[in-house]
Simulated assay, not measured.
Amino acid sequence: MRVGLFWRVFAVNAGFLALLAVLLLVTPVTISAPIALTEAAIVLVALALTLVANAILLRRTFRPLDRLVRRMASVDLVQPGQRLEVEHDDEVGRVVDAFNGMLARLEAERRESGRRVLAAQEAERVGIARDLHDEVGQALTGVLLQLGSIAVSTAQAEDELEQARDSVRSALDEVRRISRELRPEMLADLGLVSALTELTRTFGRAARVRVDTRLDHVLPRLAPETELALYRIAQESLTNVARHARASRVGVDLASDAASVVLVVRDNGAGFDGDRMGHGGLRGMRERAVLVGGALELREPDGGGVEVRVEVPARRNGDR
């Protein structure tokens, strides 16, 4: 049974006080008034030994509290697993263990609330995409047909009508593009590899950036929310490249083994220009990775640019 902190401190102090009492009782050591030099030396040495013993004991005992304070000041729930080792089964150890338990509960609650928020966002995206496709898209298609019929009967305004039709076609293409970005139907129908292939092809054409892809076509089983997280992270990474990087080349790699899948998006652009976590929705990308049990890493390679690397676990047999 481990002795508590109070009793350990008490035992050290009581032991030295008892030692002083024994010295006074069974030895010729005395304290006179006025005190002699040797007597003063004995008292000071005993006091110094008591202070040193207390300092050693308390330093070893309270060192975990120092680590606890530093961890509490720096903990980030976006990076789970930041636990402290419980070194002793005493009052301080129980405080550290309670802190670890609190972190575990906070991380679990944050994951659950994050999943609900992302599910609501995806449902809202699907609804907006459906409205764009069904309402706005059909309306623009109707206008395009009407312009075509007017052009047949009004030859004098043929040039103006052709320009109007081109504008409507452009608007219709834009609506379809937004709808695809909001609701990646290809992801649900054909899988992650096909969806990433189409995403990179569309991005390269729109941003006029060369995109090199290396996608592993044989992937382990992934949960639907994990595939969606990887797709959204790739989508956000490419959007950041188009908006901020001023890059001429982008690489998108998707590799896997039996236990995990790794997505890497790298560019040769300008790199970071400030707080990484506040740059281009990077914190949201990290949160998506954490919510599916993965980890996201950001770095600036030696050759310049930014590399986003996310690793997520594969679905185990028996997982739903």
Rank of each mutant, 00 (worst) to 15 (best):
E107H: 08
L37F: 12
R105F: 10
H244Y: 15
A120D: 10
D267H: 05
E158N: 03
R246L: 12
L47R: 02
P184R: 11
N317K: 03
S167P: 00
D97S: 11
E297Q: 14
A104M: 10
V262W: 01
R176H: 12
L196I: 04
E122R: 15
G81Y: 08
G271T: 06
R180D: 09
L222E: 00
F62G: 01
V250P: 01
R288G: 01
M186A: 14
A123W: 01
V152L: 06
A98L: 04
A245C: 06
G251R: 15
R309L: 11
T197S: 14
E185K: 15
D159V: 00
G251E: 13
V250D: 04
Y231Q: 09
V22K: 03
D173W: 10
F99C: 10
V265R: 06
M72G: 01
R165F: 03
A21L: 12
S260N: 02
L199S: 09
D97Y: 02
E225K: 07
I128P: 08
R316S: 03
V126P: 00
V78K: 05
L140A: 08
V265Y: 09
V78T: 12
R176K: 13
L58H: 06
I178N: 08
R176C: 03
A242L: 04
G303P: 01
R83E: 12
V86L: 12
Q138S: 14
V308G: 02
T154H: 04
G304W: 11
G284Q: 08
A270I: 10
A247D: 07
R214E: 13
V262H: 03
E225S: 05
R110P: 01
R8N: 04
R299A: 11
G127D: 11
T38H: 13
E185P: 06
R205S: 15
T61Q: 12
V45S: 06
P34T: 10
I31F: 15
R165I: 03
T226H: 00
G305F: 06
D302C: 06
A242M: 05
P184M: 13
G101N: 12
G251L: 09
R246K: 14
A295M: 07
A11L: 14
A55Y: 10
Q156H: 07
A295E: 12
G148S: 11
D90M: 07
M102G: 04
S260Y: 02
R201S: 15
A314C: 01
D267T: 06
D302G: 12
V75N: 09
L106A: 15
G271A: 08
L20Y: 05
D212R: 14
E311I: 14
F203P: 04
A270E: 13
Q138T: 15
A46H: 09
N268A: 10
V126Q: 15
I42H: 00
T226Y: 02
L144D: 03
